[in-house]
Structures are given as structure tokens and as C-alpha cells.
Design a protein around this nucleic acid. Structure first.
Lengths: 198, 198
DNA sequence: TAAAGCATGTACCGAACGATACAGTTTTCG
DNA sequence: CGAAAACTGTATCGTTCGGTACATGCTTTA
């Protein structure tokens, strides 16, 4: 009765969506099975550790995505001003302009926080550190950069909460816009090398 | 086997604490019974509607507290600048300087959002509206006041998320401080009567 | 003090939970 | 081809879930 070959990585997005919609406790195995199209057997084949391993894997993939598309970009950019704008765009797209919640933030406010505290800390502190690094490269003082970075992460998270509660994604877009407008201005002079995204 | 007379209002804070710690789904009746010291019988005597009514009552009490201590103060203050500072202090105290999460925010990010969507909307929109009103009375333009109010609520919520995730209450205190410093300055001149704003 | 009504603890219910066992089916590869 | 490995659906485990029933005892009224 086996079906076509599935890969663990294939079900991760579906799994993530299920946890996003229902939370850790709320996502029952029946629900997860429905969301992924997999039976309990398959689920436990891919994730022997059960529900906890499923959530852990989802968090891992989220971290990996942010590491690739946000943190690394901020850390390695030649032009930090452009990198900041670029990662802000990527963030807005990732959260579907406020229609999608941050699973990490949701976990942080739930009682699953303790279970995944390491992942949660890493996610937020890396984000903050990467922003801080890029901001300080734009010429902000260490103190300014630290405060500014913290405020950016916090604004995005708060905007997601509010957007969700008021069912108004515009709140998130506006918050992103405000963050963008407070960024150090990018140099207008474009050097000949490899121009960053427009 | 009855014990001393309890009042419904007596158990609400304990109930709130249980929901804060474990979330709606995570707070089982066994846990709630333990937290409140009440058996299922008493619980269902006070809250015939079961768990949903318990959570509803808790949200109601939270709303009432904010209405009294925050929203009304902002709406009826003679000196909005002072009211803003005062309610900010009250907010910091309420959230125990970042050590306590916002149950309403937590609910907003969980799958219980739909169940209590009305309460969640009311809480945040009243908060925002009250801030907006007070800010516009300080002389901010309607557009400025609206944006500013939204940003304050959002910052506080985001700070609570971050403080929880990073286990660093200081994040919340710093955020409050930043909000405070961006408030329109209160007039130092104190007139005897009831001074109106220009 | 006796009746009345409220408050409470205990036992219990069916349903759903997370998890496991296992047989059956497909894929892989020598 | 044929055996080993990978995969998946079903049945079922023991537990816990939210919720109910009810007898017992306390507090209040008279």
C-alpha cells in the first residue's frame, strides 16, 4: 500500500503550515496527517522522535532559510545599506506581507517555549546580531546599532502579532515601511563591480 | 465536603496565570484545577461554559483592567502628555517589566484566535484608539497620531515576544524607555486651572 | 435549630490524544 | 529475477482530554 517516494524535506513546509495554523499542542497527529497527506506510519518513519521531532525539524528549516536569506546576507554584504533593504524585502515576502505569522514568535509565547528554547534564542539572537553587524557597518555607533537592531526585530514581531489580532496585514507592511525609512541611507554612488539588487 | 466560600472573581487571576503559562490548549482541566485549587465541580459551578468560559472571563477581566487603568486614562486625561507617561508606567508594571507575557497577544498567535477574535480585536483596537486620541491631543496631526499609536502598541507586543524568546526582560524595559522618550514632551508650565491644549 | 440552597469532591463518561506494532506494498540494487 | 530495504495504511495501545452526574457538606436564612 505504499505510495510514491516522499522525502522528509518535502513534508516540512506542509508540517510548518500545520504548526503555524494550529500551534504545537493544537496540531494533532490526525491534523498533521491530513495536512501532509501522510499516515501515522509514514510520519513516524520520517520523524522517529514523534511530534517533537517534527516541530524541531520545522524550526530547523526555518532557521536554515533565515540563515541563508537573511543572516548571511547581512553578515557578508559589501554594501550593508543595500543588504538591509534586500533582507527587509525578503522578510516581507516571507511573512506574506503580514498574512503569515512567525512560528518562532508563536512558540515563544506558548508553553512549548521551554521545549525549544534553544532554537528560539538562536533564531532571534542571530537575527539581532546580524542586523547589528550590518547597521554598525553603515556607520552607526555600536550602541546605536545594538538598539536599532533590537528595535527592528521587535517591530516586525509586534507587527505580526497586531496584524494577526486585528486581521489587518497592512499593519505589517506599514511597519516594514517605517523600518525601511529609518535605515541609514544607501550611497547613491554605484561602483562598477557587481551591483546589488535595485 | 465543601470548603470556604470562593468567589468567581477570586479565581480569575489564578486562571489567568494558568493560561499565560500553558496557553489555551495546554492548560488542561487538571492543570487548571491544580493552579486554582478548585476541583472540577467548583470550576464548572463557576464557569458552566467550561474552559471556553474560563478563558473568556479571563480576557474580560484583562479588558476591564486595561479599560480602567489605560484606555480611560488616555481618553479622559486633562494633560495627555502626563496620561501617556502614566499609562506607560502602568503597562510596565502590569507586564512585570517584561517577565509576564500578554495573554491577548499569545492568543492572537495561537489557533484560539478565531474563538476569541472579538475580544482580541477590541483589546488592541481600543488600545490603539486611546493612544491615538491622547497623542492627537498633544498636537500631533491625525496621521502622525495614528501611526505613532500603532507603533507603540506594536513595539510593546514585539518586545514581549522578544523578551520571552531571549529570556531577557530588559528588552521590554528598554522598549518602554524608547517609547517614552519619543512621546511629545509634557509642558513644564503647570497652570492653575484646566489648561487646554493648543 | 432546622430547612434551603449554594459550593464542592469524587467517580465516571465517550472521545481524542500521542505513540506503537505490524502486515503489506513498493522501490532499490546486486 | 529475487532478496533486502524503504515506505505506508490500519488497528490498537494506554493515557488524558473536556465535560457530566450526583451525593455530601457547608453556609445562610428563618
Amino acid at each position: 500500500m505504499a505510495r510514491t517516494v516522499s522525502e522528509r524535506s518535502d513534508v516540512l513546509p506542509l508540517l510548518a503550515e500545520a504548526f503555524r495554523e494550529h500551534g504545537y499542542e493544537g496540531a494533532s497527529l490526525a491534523l498533521i496527517g491530513e495536512a501532509t497527506g501522510l499516515g501515522r506510519g509514514s510520519l513516524y518513519h520520517f520523524f522517529p522522535g514523534g511530534k517533537e521531532e517534527m516541530a524541531s525539524a520545522v524550526l530547523g528549516e526555518i532557521e536554515a532559510w533565515f540563515e541563508t536569506n537573511i543572516f548571511r546576507v547581512l553578515r557578508t554584504a559589501e554594501h550593508p545599506e543595500n543588504a538591509l533593504l534586500q533582507t527587509l524585502d525578503a522578510t516581507e515576502e516571507y511573512f506574506r506581507s503580514g498574512r503569515r505569522i512567525c512560528l518562532v514568535g508563536a512558540f515563544a509565547l506558548s508553553d512549548t517555549r521551554d521545549r525549544f528554547s534553544l532554537s528560539l534564542r538562536r533564531y532571534f539572537s542571530e537575527w539581532r546580531a546580524a542586523l547589528e553587524f550590518a547597521l554598525s557597518k553603515t556607520g552607526e555607533t555600536p550602541a546605536e546599532a545594538a538598539t536599532h537592531a533590537e528595535e527592528i526585530v521587535l517591530s516586525l514581531q509586534g507587527a505580526l502579532v497586531l496584524a494577526r489580532a486585528l486581521d489587518d496585514p497592512g499593519i505589517f507592511s506599514r511597519a516594514i515601511g517605517r523600518v525601511r525609512s529609518r535605515l541609514p541611507k544607501a550611497r547613491t554612488k554605484r561602483r562598477g563591480g557587481a551591483p546589488r539588487l535595485p
